[in-house]
């Protein structure tokens, strides 16, 4: 059985997922994630050495569209939902100093 997930690991994962938590939340999340992962550990009861993985239930692969251009949405229509836009672009906080 794997050791329980620690608070530091939860903080590391939170950064990867671009989430942040306050101290109380981190404690609750660490506890619940630990419980869920313990339950998931149940899968180790099964020997799956020679079992192929299933990523998808359908026997389809490489679905290819015809190489044909079609009309997309007008720029202003797409920008209508943007929280911040300027001069026809999405606007974000400064990235490069």
């Amino acid at each position: 059985m794997m050791p329980r997930i620690t608070m530091d690991e939860v903080l590391r994962v939170a950064h990867l997922a671009r989430l942040e938590f306050d101290d109380t939340e981190i404690e609750v999340f660490t506890y619940h994630l630990g419980e869920i992962l313990d339950y998931i550990g149940k899968l180790n009861e099964l020997d799956t050495t020679d079992v192929p993985p299933t990523s998808h239930v359908l026997p389809v692969c490489n679905v290819i569209k015809t190489d044909k251009a079609w009309d997309s949405y007008a720029r202003e229509v797409v920008l209508e939902n943007a929280p911040s836009a300027e001069e026809g672009h999405f606007k974000v906080p400064k990235v490069i100093d």
Binding site: L43, L46, T48, V51, P53
Partner: peptide
Amino acid sequence: LKAQKVRTL
């Protein structure tokens, strides 16, 4: 990967 294998089973 483990979960995908059990999914096969």
